[in-house]
Structure formats: C-alpha cells, structure tokens
Amino acid sequence: MTTMPTVETVTSGTAQPQLERPAKVVARGVNVYYGDKQALKDVSLDIDARSVTSFIGPSGCGKSTFLRCINRMNDTIASCRVSGRIEIDSQDIYDPALDVVQLRARVGMVFQKPNPFPKSIFENVAYGPRIHGLARTKAELEEAVISSLQKAGLFEEVKDRLDEPGTGLSGGQQQRLCIARAIAVAPEVILMDEPCSALDPIATAKVEELIDELRENYTIIIVTHSMQQAARVSQRTAFFHLGVLVEDGLTDSIFTNPKDRRTLDYITGRFG
C-alpha cells in the first residue's frame, strides 16, 4: 500500500493530540432498520473536529446509511428507523425537541451525483442563505455567495456567468458548486457521499484538494469507494462491513497495519 507524503505529514500532525481528541460527532450503539432489514448494527464512533474522516467498505455495508444518520436525511425514507444515540457537540440530534431544519443548517451534505438546482449559479449558492435568512441585504447575500464560491475554488471559473444555469457547468464544477452551496450556510460538519464517483480524475483531484483546504474550518466526513482517495484526503478512516463498524483509527495505521483480518482482506483487494 502506497501512502502519499502529504498524508504522512498530516497524520503525524494529528497523531499527537490523540489522547485528547476533540470529538465533534459521537455515535453510540446506533442501529438502523429499513423495514425488517437491519442495515447498521450497534455502531459506536467518535469523529474528530476540523479533520477529514473517511468511511470505506464494500457496497451495501452501511457506510452511506450511517452518513445519512448524521444529518437525519434518513427521516425522508418512510420505512427507516434509527435507534441509539448520535451527538454533535454533546447535543443529541435525535432529541424530539431538536429542529431538524437547524440541524441540517449545521450539517451540510454533498451528494454522489452533482445535483445543482435548475437555477442560476448565483441562486444555487444563495439558496441556503435565503431559506435560513442569513443575509439581510442584497449586498450581504452577494458577499456570502462570492465568498462561498471562493472557498469552493469555483469563483474564478464562474465569476463572469453567475446568472447562467448551474446545470450548464461541467460535472466537476457542478460538484464544487454543490460544495459552495453547502458551505454558504456556514455549517460545522460537511457530509460527502462519494462526491467524486461521477467525476473524471482531474475534477476528482480538484475536489480532493478542496476537501483538504476545507479541513481547516469544517469537520468533514466522506464516504468513498476508492481506498486511494481515503488514503489521500482523510486523517482517520472507519471500515464498515455488513452493517458493522469493523475498525476505525488513523488512516495511516488502518492502511499499513490493520488490526482486523477483514480490514486487511478488503484493503488488499481480496473482496469488495
């Protein structure tokens, strides 16, 4: 297994404060059922603040399901039931008193396939600030949109055509537009569900670069099928298999020195 130099420096950087990890998201005993089928079994996991955590595992292992628990997108599926406890900053997000709208403003999401709204580039990014009333004046809204596009590394490419439809951009640009849209509401956590699986290698590299930059300000959780991607962008990695969290730890040690036999088999390509 080859690890890239950047990852090594990064992991060695986060290795020291490991004793006192600043956990942003804490999951304890999470079970998810779709109807009668159990998709996730007793998952307990701590996710560090201001770092990138990747979820890997074969298809149907429950990694996306767990991701969607963190902003309660599973609520939109009628047959889905979630038990256990998930906390963000020690606040239970399944507390009935909690407003899911506010939760999702704090926990942004980027999807597998770029899904810009059929609106202009500007309106796509302005969508979140508008529905949450984050900008009082037009100037403030413009500022928020521009700064989000800048943070997503897209502004230079689209600054002359903010009024054109977002669906007219290339796949990679669309995905970065979706990231800009997500960060426009200043979330604390950004969930990414295989954000590069529909992109070509060059667009993928750009998105990965962006993820690495965003790590300074956001807690990022990324589901990926590509173990190389997990190794490149993430500081910690969690391996899921058949709805069970098999192993989690520093990305470096997961890929070089896995503790569990199943993890070893997966990362060496024996299944999955």
Partner: peptide, 14 residues
C-alpha cells in the same frame, strides 16, 4: 429528480 429534493432538504429547507 429525487436528488434535487434531497439537495434542498439537506440544506435545511422544509
């Protein structure tokens, strides 16, 4: 597409 609805809901829209 459902993905547009998901995108909007994930932004915290009702």
């Amino acid at each position: 597409p459902q993905s547009l609805r998901d995108g909007s809901l994930a932004m915290g829209a009702t």
